Amino acid sequence: MRRVVWPLFAFVIIGNFAGYAIAGDNGLMAWGGYYRALEEREAELAALEAQRDALRHRSELLDPRAADPDMAEELVRRDLGLIREDEIIITLD
């Protein structure tokens, strides 16, 4: 009986580790989920980088040393309420 117990115990331990290596949280079957999550995060990163670039461009247009006159006029008129109801503002974004 003792000859069977230790090899059986070792087999159970090795089987446990093999099971977690295949179907565990970080196992082989979880890799597909990691790739999907990576693709989602990369798409989110691309959208945030595009938003950052747009904000950087807009802030460059409002640089006090060389402000874009059209952008400055648009912001001042909008913030101070100097836009008439019959005017149409077309943004170039």
Rank of each mutant, 00 (worst) to 15 (best):
L45I: 15
E44K: 09
G32Y: 02
M29V: 02
L48I: 11
A30N: 02
N26C: 07
A72W: 02
V76D: 09
R41P: 00
E73P: 02
R52S: 11
L48H: 09
A18M: 12
V76M: 03
G24K: 09
L61A: 01
G24D: 09
A43M: 04
I22F: 13
L75S: 00
L75C: 01
A54P: 01
A37P: 01
A47W: 08
A67E: 08
D53A: 14
E42P: 00
A47R: 11
L55Q: 10
L55M: 14
N26R: 14
D79T: 15
A23R: 04
E42Y: 04
D63M: 11
E73G: 06
L38P: 00
A46N: 08
A46E: 15
L45P: 01
G32M: 02
M29P: 02
L45Y: 14
Y34T: 07
R78N: 12
G33H: 05
S59E: 08
A47T: 11
D53I: 03
M29F: 10
E60P: 03
A50N: 13
P69T: 15
R65L: 15
R77A: 09
A66W: 09
H57D: 15
R58C: 08
D70A: 12
R36A: 04
L48S: 13
R78C: 06
H57Q: 14
H57M: 10
R41D: 03
D63E: 13
E44G: 07
P69S: 12
W31G: 00
R36M: 07
A18Y: 06
A72G: 01
L55W: 09
R36D: 12
A18G: 10
E60N: 12
A72I: 06
M71P: 00
E40R: 06
G33L: 07
G32P: 00
A30K: 00
G19C: 10
P64M: 04
R77I: 06
E49I: 05
D68K: 04
A18T: 15
L61G: 00
E74T: 14
A54V: 11
P69Q: 10
L62K: 12
V76W: 05
D25Y: 08
Y34N: 02
R58I: 15
L38V: 03
R41Q: 10
M71Y: 01
E49H: 04
F17P: 00
L62C: 11
E40S: 06
D79E: 12
